[in-house]
Structure formats: C-alpha cells, structure tokens
Design a protein around this nucleic acid. Structure first.
Lengths: 172, 172
DNA sequence: ATATACTTGACTTAAACGGTCGGGTATCTA
DNA sequence: TAGATACCCGACCGTTTAAGTCAAGTATAT
C-alpha cells in the first residue's frame, strides 16, 4: 500500500497553480522549473486533470493552465482519484474478481475492512481543499491540519458549502 | 494507492487460524485448501508473520502455526505492516528522498498530508483486532464494523487493554 | 508567420507483484 | 531409528505497473 509519486506530483502541481496564478494561466514550463518535475511528465498528468475538470487549459502564447474552480472547491481526494487507481476494487480478492471462494459468502468480513478503509481514506482526502493548503499564512493549517469533517466528494459543479465546522485532526 | 492481495491473503490466513484452531497448530496445507491460496505462497507469507511475532510455528507431524497472542491482541494493521511496504516514506517526495526541492522547506504542506494519511490508515487498521473479525456470531460486527477507537499499535507483549470504549464506524 | 504552449500516443526502463521450484531442517510417531 | 509430516529458506520467473521519455502534432496570440 503505497501512495504513488504521480499522486504527490499532481497535488503539488495543482497547488503550485493555486499559489502562483493571479488569474492568468500558468504554463507547465514554470511549474516544471519550480517543482522540479519533468515537463513531459507534467503534460501527461495534466491531461487527466483537465478531463477530470480540475484545471482548464489555455493554448497559445501566454497560455497555460488555470484552476477549473476556486481552490476551496477542489479537494485533494478529487485530484488523487483522477491520477491513481482506486484503493478499493472487489469484495474479498483483487482485480479480476476471480477467486471468490469466500467462505462467509456475501457478508465477507475481510472484504468489509478494505471497503471501509477505502471510504476512510477518501473521506480524509476529500476533507482537505486546495484552499486549505494554499493558505501558508496560517501555520496551524500545516501542522495539525485543520480540515472540514465528512465532506464527501464535492459535486463537480461549484459547491460553495462553507457550512461544515472545522475539526482538528491529531498528528501523532 | 492500492492494497495488495498479499496483504489481504495474510489477513485471511491468520483469521483462518483464529477460527479453525482449537489450541492445536493449524498446518498451512489446511489453510491452503480452505482459502484457496497456494501452499508455497503461504509459506512465504508466514515466514514474515512469524518473524513479526504474529504467529508461532510448530514443526514436525501435527505441526503448523498458532497465534502468537490471543486474537484480541493482534490487530489487522500489525499484519498488514509486516507484509506490505509502509504507506508513508519521506516528507515530500518518495523513496530515495532525492528530490527535496520543497519550496516550503521543513513545514512542507504536501508532505504533511501524506504523513497524516498514513497515520490515519494505521490508526484505523490498528483499531480492528482478529477477535473482532473472528466473532461471526455478532452480525453487527461485520457490517458497520464495531471497533475500538485510537488504539495505537499494541505493544508486542500481551497487552490486555480492554479499556477503550467501542465506537461505531459508519459504512457508506 | 512565428513562437508559444498545450495535445496525443507510442515507447522504454526498472521495479514490484504474485507466484513457483527445489532443496533443506526439525520433530513426532511407529 | 527410520520415515513421514510440515515448517524453513533462497533463488527464480513471468507479468504488470510506475515513472519517465520521445516525437510529432494542433491551437492561438502577437
């Protein structure tokens, strides 16, 4: 169980836009330079991010990428799900769903764990928005991350739900 | 981000012992038959589980494996960590720790997320014990898993900490 | 026109995953 | 003291995936 560098890169790259764009498009070349990520690798990532409606592209000179929505409406979970394969696949066993000799049948215990774990992870990552990360000005956001609880996968439109109360996640 | 079948197999196999052993050792051949896992693959997994003090081995005829501790003192997280590489590696970037051009320096925001995510996952998996899973008799344990909150990596000895209050994790 | 910068798909390399093979070694039972 | 049982261990192997590159585009602002 491992978080891929692809996922980390994507979060960093999108965060880069959130921080360095003042409304105008940010070219990948700039992100590549700042973050030390190969330009062509970035291109590959941003195609998925664009299709996933996280960023929009602007072609031509002075082009680049802009956020598709405001930072507070883009969650980390959303980005990660676009880039990485899903954590949870089948009930008990993996992928092809072949070996289904689960003696407990439909109520398989083992399967329930992985499903709940996946939901747990998604819920956590969905609770963090780009805006939360972009605000360097608040140090307490960095350590002891201040997040909004139980925000489940923001509806792709423009959900300005500023209603949830902040919650403190303890760090070790 | 993916949970490997190795990890799933391990949990199933150890759970098998918890369910089918009445104190006497359970041979891998029996687990192999019941769970549909190759004997030689099981051997590979159980070597790590033994070194990690999850199971003990008994050699010779009527030998096999027994749990190293009582089921309530063995967590799923413990098993998974023995088999799988850790979720969290370095602060910002991965593995070799090479690319450390993190513009935010020590208080790197991106890094904090993955660290907290890893702690989140570990905490969740550590909150589930073999005993929780073995009790098929309680159906509510399977769906809407009843777990103990915030149990951090039971000390390898025999920690009979039955003090934590149960908590309901919502499913979907 | 031309430079900028996104778009796309194929390709490559190395590592990890899932799994096998073949020979051990300990120990119980007869 | 044989021999069967069953753990022990390291090497190996094929496939998939991750990470990253290459080459050849297309759209657009100046």
């Amino acid at each position: 169980m491992q978080i891929s560098t692809k996922g980390k890169y994507s979060v960093r790259a999108v965060l880069d836009i959130a921080q360095y764009s003042n409304g105008s498009p940010v070219p990948l070349a700039a992100i590549s330079k700042r973050e030390g990520i190969s330009l062509q690798f970035l291109e590959q990532l941003f195609q998925q991010l664009r299709k996933g409606n996280v960023v929009n592209s602007v072609r031509g000179p002075h082009g680049g990428y802009v956020l598709a929505r405001e930072p507070s409406a883009i969650t980390i979970g959303e980005i990660v799900r676009l880039i990485e394969p899903p954590l949870y696949t089948s009930s008990c066993f993996s992928n092809d769903g072949a070996v289904e000799n689960c003696r407990i049948g439909e109520t398989c215990i083992g399967g329930a764990i992985w499903k709940q774990l996946a939901e747990h992870v998604d819920s956590f990552l969905d609770s963090i928005t780009l805006a939360d990360l972009a605000n360097k000005s608040k140090p307490e956001v960095v350590y002891g991350l201040r997040i909004k609880s139980n925000r489940i996968l923001a509806d792709r439109g423009n959900g300005n739900d500023e209603t949830a109360e902040p919650e403190k996640i303890q760090v070790a």
